[in-house]
């Protein structure tokens, strides 16, 4: 009975996210529909003959009504048939497959570094709130979230690669490196990406905790003689799981913005750079596919956060 309630809630969340994804796909599709001119002309270049344009248009279903093209495109997305790049005719799926693992590796490493660091910062700041430590953390994190990633990246390159020659300025990763080589390659990109995310996440974690620390049951715990660390960890933390999970998800979605910049600066062969390049060349099928991938990733994160919030709430778990 009780688990049914939770399952229903989670099911509803999943359903809502699927609907949301559909809505987004419509937006992405419409976005590319705004493109002026005939795609076939763009693909074939200026010198193309009328017949060639007509032939390609038919092949790309460009003569069909938009609604039908949307359905065809959506069907392709689901079945993994993402079409072909307008620029070089390569299969979009293959292009993405060659880049996706690199981006996942970068994002995964960043999450691995930043989540524990941020939680530690946020929780300690909440425990020692009002102290000098807390104020320093607060100012530093404010500063870090307001700094553009490319400033962090350029400064990092300037200091560690150009001046100190400790680390390479570019992040080429061919998979055969040793562990130390791996660390050298990823140190700068991961540090840059983590910089803003850690700050963001730490601030939100602290805010969520401080919020619960203001409740009566925390005052009650203090009046029972509970030591401060136990007050935060045993009393406040379980009630802040929902907001903290949410903070983590939101911050990790910041990764999406950061990764675009970082892959460009460090010339990292990831999905984000593929997309930036596609935007410069207006390679629409590729842009669409990348956009859908990023959105899916984002929605998954938010979904996990929602589920964590549901599972951590005894009011929902047990009626």
């Amino acid at each position: 009975m009780r688990n049914k309630v939770v399952m229903r809630l989670i099911g509803a969340r999943i359903g809502a996210n699927v609907l949301l994804l559909l809505a987004i796909s419509l937006l992405v599709f419409l976005g590319t529909e705004l493109l002026p001119g005939n795609v076939a002309e763009i693909v074939l270049g200026q010198g193309a003959t009328l017949e060639a344009v007509a032939g390609l248009s038919a092949a790309m279903h460009l003569n069909q009504p938009a609604a039908l093209r949307y359905l065809i495109w959506l069907g392709g997305l689901v079945s993994g048939n993402l079409g072909q790049s307008l620029v070089n005719g390569d299969s979009v799926a293959a292009l993405i497959a060659s880049r996706l693992p690199n981006s996942l590796l970068l994002a995964g490493l960043t999450a691995l570094v930043s989540v524990p660091a941020a939680l530690a910062l946020g929780i300690t700041a909440a425990i020692w709130r009002g102290t000098l430590y807390d104020r320093v953390v607060s100012v530093v994190t404010i500063a870090s979230v307001s700094v553009p990633e490319f400033l962090v990246a350029t400064l990092a390159v300037l200091i560690f690669a150009v001046r100190l020659h400790w680390l390479p300025a570019l992040a080429y990763f061919d998979g055969t490196d040793s562990l130390s080589g791996l660390i050298r390659v990823f140190a700068l990109p991961v540090a840059t990406l983590s910089f803003a995310i850690v700050a963001q996440m730490a601030r939100m974690t602290r805010a969520a905790l401080v919020n619960t620390l203001e409740s009566s049951y925390v005052e009650m715990a203090v009046l029972k003689g509970t030591p401060p660390a136990r007050v935060v960890l045993w009393h406040a933390l379980p009630n802040a799981v929902g907001p903290i999970a949410n903070a983590i998800a939101l911050s990790l979605s910041f990764l999406l913005g950061g990764i675009i910049i970082v892959e460009t600066i460090f010339d990292y062969p990831g999905l984000a750079r593929l997309m930036v390049d596609a935007v410069s060349t207006r390679d629409m099928p590729l842009i669409q596919a990348c956009a859908m991938l990023f959105c899916t990733f984002y929605l998954l994160l938010v979904l996990f956060a929602d589920i964590a919030a549901i599972l951590s709430n005894p009011r929902l778990r047990l009626r």
């Binding site: 049951y217 009650m220 029972k224 009630n239």
Partner: peptide, 25 residues
């Protein structure tokens, strides 16, 4: 010493029990 004193020698019953109990425990 205050932390050792509170909850052992003096205990407190608050106005709103609903708020004074931690909902997650």
């Amino acid at each position: 010493a205050l932390a050792r004193f509170r909850g052992r020698h003096v205990c407190y019953i608050a106005q709103s029990a609903a708020a004074a109990f931690n909902p997650a425990r």
